[in-house]
Design a protein around this nucleic acid. Structure first.
Lengths: 252, 252
DNA sequence: ATTACCAACTGGTCTGACCAGTTTTTAAAT
DNA sequence: ATTTAAAAACTGGTCAGACCAGTTGGTAAT
């Protein structure tokens, strides 16, 4: 293994072992080179590797920073290859919904079991926002609500999985919201479904919560399938082909 | 965005767009630098980034090669950060099993629905191997069986999710196999559960397949919980911490 | 106090040299 | 002629120092 690899590994260790927290600034390349006794080129190569792994973000003139998101979460991120590979296919949305059905069902189940007072408070806040906001304008409240549930599940792996799907999910939710919400009846149904999930979790009824969550996702999928088969104008998941932005990701 | 990033992206495009197949050799750094009109340093940085993303592998004196695994498959590999973050906590195994329950249940469900002849053939092969191999020696047949199921689900996102959990799962499966299999009764139960899953999928019974898969994972989790509560010797998920810190390197 | 500017950071790129493995070619020894 | 060993021509790995290009903060002129 080359020196560069070793350096990359040592830096990653440093970051992960709590020495450096997210968003924290990493010493400058010249400093690192000096301190570690290697040339700046090596440092740059190591940093690029970490960059590839999503551990750090680098900005010209500013410096390098520990990525705000958990490193391994980067998988399906903005300009990740997967996104480009998948996002184009309409089937992807349904594939995603299939996975969401399970993951969110489980999340709701666990949330009903394990939610603390804080979780319940956050969930309530998210739910209120969901009720008050115009659903057409943006999908964030919707996604925020679902995320609050996941976090209340207290299963780090579950959280991680769904964080990895964050961007795809945003698009997915966006697509479904845009398609489904305008139809008054559907909008109403979805509202009711959200409330069912919310109340089941608050009431501490795991089985009901799971069923409500699964029904919800399934309803969305089925509805869109129906719409599509009727030849309606279906707004698909937008295909992102921009590689320019690095920091302007939606904050959810 | 810097030149290096652009180069990295262009190279990845080349690879993904079928220009370069797995295990194929990439032009030498000097050639690339020449052809793309940039310095060798830039090329090296770009290659390191791709290396970090698992798209290529590089060998001193030989060259760089497209990674045998498809790029999109890369993620929580061997010593991925998440591993180190989580693997230490025993609860992680149960968290993982909770997620597996859902994901594998869904995979079995879809596999029963969608499996092609090829899938069925692969599945059969994996199942035979599972039956014939001594389960104590290694957990790979077990994991291979589960993986065959997932691939038969024909849901790329599901495949991706579970591939990402592969290594953790290997440890998880390893732990459960090591703990559960020696007890004859349990070993027998698990065998039977595997057969149930297998047969349900082959028979094209989605609901049964899901139930069988969920029951299986749940059985494993419950059994281990029981064992643990009885104070039995439980082999946990091994925590790997070989850092091979070479000698007196100055700490940062 | 505000503005403009400049110096001192930061990362980004280039060059050309040299070290260290690997492969191929060449030339010597049999 | 075949085998074998040395050497040349690859490959990536590292280093040095220079210069370009954004960002930031302080200072001097207004």
């Amino acid at each position: 293994m080359g020196r560069s690899q070793e350096i990359s590994y040592r830096l990653e260790q440093l970051i992960l072992d709590g020495g450096l927290a997210p968003d924290q600034k990493i010493p400058s390349e010249r400093q690192l080179a000096d301190r570690l006794g290697v040339s700046r080129a090596i440092i740059r190569e190591a940093l690029h590797e970490l960059q590839g792994r999503g551990v750090i973000d680098t900005f010209h003139g500013k410096g390098s920073f520990v990525a705000s998101i958990v490193p391994a979460t980067r998988d399906l991120d903005d300009n990740g290859p997967l996104m480009h590979l998948f996002a184009g296919h309409p089937r992807t949305m349904y594939d995603l919904l299939e996975v969401r059905e399970q993951l969110e069902g489980q999340a709701a189940f666990l949330a009903a079991q394990r939610a603390t007072d804080i979780d319940r408070h956050r969930l309530t806040k998210a739910f209120r926002m969901l009720e008050e906001t115009d659903p057409l304008s943006n999908a964030k409240p919707d996604h925020g609500f679902h995320q609050a549930i996941v976090e209340a599940s207290h299963n780090p792996i579950l959280v991680h999985m769904l964080k990895g799907l964050k961007n795809m999910m945003l698009l997915s939710v966006q697509a479904s919201v845009a398609n489904l919400n305008p139809r008054e009846a559907m909008r109403h149904s979805i509202m009711k479904q959200h409330r069912r999930i919310y109340q089941a979790i608050l009431a501490g009824k795991p089985a009901s919560a799971r069923k409500a969550a699964i029904d919800h996702v399934r309803f969305v999928a089925d509805s869109m399938r129906d719409l599509e088969s009727q030849g309606a104008e279906v707004i698909r998941m937008p295909i992102d082909t921009e590689h320019t932005n690095s920091g302007a990701t939606p904050s959810v």
